[in-house]
Simulated assay, not measured.
Amino acid sequence: MTEIPIDLDKHRGMAAQKATDIRRVVADVEANAKLLRETQGVVEIQLLAVPATSWPEAVAKARYVLNLYSASLAPSDTHHRDLVTAVLADLTRLSGEN
């Protein structure tokens, strides 16, 4: 028995290698999405539990919620997308950020 691993991908056709690569990428994306959902849940619990103590904290919370809302909009809903963009720009301008 040899201790050198055999690269089985070399013994398969290109289509099979690409299919394996796609499955690996999809598995990675699904794992990352699960981690992101878990992290998002923790962040949202903290946002609900702790009231903002300053305008910058309130602005950060508002940005988070507006970005969530914007992500749920249909691509064709340009009116609401433009409204979210304008409000985010207002928040940036009024908070003194560049």
Rank of each mutant, 00 (worst) to 15 (best):
L83R: 12
T2M: 07
V50H: 12
A62G: 05
N67V: 11
H79I: 10
P56V: 03
D7I: 06
D28F: 01
S72N: 08
P56N: 04
A89Q: 15
N67D: 15
L66S: 10
H79Q: 12
T2Q: 09
K18T: 07
L68I: 12
D77A: 14
V26K: 05
A74I: 03
N98G: 13
D9M: 09
S70Q: 13
E97Y: 00
T92S: 14
Q40G: 02
H11W: 10
V59Q: 00
R24W: 05
V42L: 06
D90N: 15
N67I: 11
A71W: 00
G96H: 05
E44T: 07
S72P: 00
V84Y: 13
L47I: 14
P5N: 09
L88G: 06
I6L: 14
T2C: 07
V65F: 12
A60M: 05
E3P: 05
E30V: 06
V29W: 02
D77E: 11
R23F: 11
I22S: 07
E97G: 00
A60G: 05
V65E: 08
S54V: 02
M1G: 15
Y69A: 12
M14D: 11
D28Q: 09
P51V: 01
D77N: 15
A60C: 04
R12N: 03
N32M: 06
T92M: 15
V26G: 00
D77T: 06
D21K: 10
V42Q: 08
T20P: 00
N67M: 13
V50F: 04
S72K: 10
T53E: 13
D9W: 02
N67T: 15
